[in-house]
Nucleic acid binder design. Structure first.
Lengths: 241, 241
DNA sequence: TTAAACTGTTTATGGCTGAAGCAGAACTGT
DNA sequence: ACAGTTCTGCTTCAGCCATAAACAGTTTAA
């Protein structure tokens, strides 16, 4: 029933699961959620760029245009994919009453989801992205943990951005890594670096010391520890209660 | 002279400025660098997605296909754009002999470049991105500053990733913000959040406290201070000399 | 029973990257 | 001087993509 324009239901209503179902006409054979699930399968297997309306439609044996009866466009489909993949917010009470174990558990939980679906970074970065209820749920859980710091709300928000930003960057740096491609160009680039070693002295030393070996420590944990140490220092410096 | 395949010069040679110029045939009317500069102008004005071979070519009054005589493909053009925009590495000796002022100055300098060209984030995130000499130069400068921490090379590398990651995330979060779009959907979403306030208690409190007002403090400086406080704590905890 | 509402199709438009082939320009060695 | 070679820049084309428009068929409400 609630329509906005054309034959396309409102994106917000779509994300919050409030599509009033029609009464007349043939029974719909699909739902937005099923379409989003099929799109997620494509993205998991071949990346977000491989998600095209036509390819998703073949999962159901219908033409590409059929999907436009359920989803206003591709941007909105991507928004739906995000909500499909985001499980319900985690329960952090197991992590105890302190802010730090809680936000750490939160970061690990959402990082696991990002790791399973690396395209999430790009999907939630699109400038026309609309935030859905599950995304808000995860935000709420993180902010609840950070309220325990006693920091100001503005500082809580900044700390939240810092943590989620770190998770996203970490995933991006590991997921964009194409081993075959890196080998190919890494060899050519290494030659060039060798030839110009005195031009990049610190870099050359770091490479020689093996600092760029991918077998290094877990980037998520390292950064999280540093960031939360910094938040800790802020709490101690400026007590708010 | 040094060709790899087809008529396309090697991307690595291209980035390092080692294209041996041809002797026979008509004088080339363009150069890879000039093409990249025109592409940068398009990206600055309309975003990276608006950079198409055809559109860049119109800057020179030639057809889109003409550019393929100078650049193997679009991915390589984007790599060149990155090198064009990255100025020469900064001189950090003004910042004194300590690691912290140096890496802070470094972060501010590269953040200024990212801010002037927000598409840099996406451009250097493409999985087939090839790192050029100027990018290596900036890396080298950062690692030289972090060598002063006395941390292990692996830790220096992780700290570097943390800092550059923070700069990139900060830019992405501010640059992807489309004010008109945010107003449009923000209103609809706010209604929904109001209706479900008890479902998102911490989020509701934070919004009520004005923590989401964009007029907040500088995200770059806040995160940088937290991260470097964390690095400081690591140095104090595990002295390496 | 008729009209409205709805689904899924075909067709078409305009965008993009990039392959192939062609005309003509400018250099090389004879 | 004059081929032959090599190079530029063009046109054409194929194959993707999102999505607009028009249409045929289906189901229900009035």
């Amino acid at each position: 029933m609630p329509k906005t324009e054309g034959g396309a239901r409102s994106t917000v209503a779509l994300l919050w699961g409030e599509q009033g179902q029609p009464t007349r006409g043939p029974k719909p054979s699909l739902t937005p959620a099923r379409i989003a699930e099929a799109a997620v399968a494509v993205a998991d297997a071949e990346g977000l760029d491989a998600v095209s309306m036509a390819k998703v439609a073949t999962s159901f044996g219908v033409s590409g245009m059929a999907l436009y009866r359920y989803v206003p466009g591709k941007d909105e489909l991507v928004d739906l994919m995000v909500e499909v993949v985001l499980a319900e917010r985690p329960d952090l009470t197991d992590a105890g009453p302190d802010w730090r174990p809680r936000i750490t558990a939160w970061a690990r939980a959402i990082s696991a989801i990002y790791q399973a679906h690396p395209w999430l970074v790009k999907a939630t970065t699109l400038r026309r992205h609309v935030t859905g209820p599950r995304q808000f749920g995860w935000m709420d859980t993180a902010l609840a943990a950070l309220e325990l710091t006693g920091l100001s709300y503005a500082q809580q928000h900044q700390a939240f951005l810092l943590v989620i930003g770190h998770v996203r960057v970490t995933i991006q740096q590991s997921a964009d890594f194409d081993a075959d491609y890196a080998r190919e160009w890494g060899r050519l680039t290494a030659e060039r670096l060798d030839r110009d070693a005195e031009r990049f002295p610190a870099l050359t030393r770091a490479i020689a010391a093996g600092a760029f070996e991918p077998a290094g420590a877990d980037a998520l944990e390292f950064g999280l520890d540093r960031i939360l140490d910094g938040v800790q220092a802020l709490i101690e410096r400026a007590p708010h209660d």
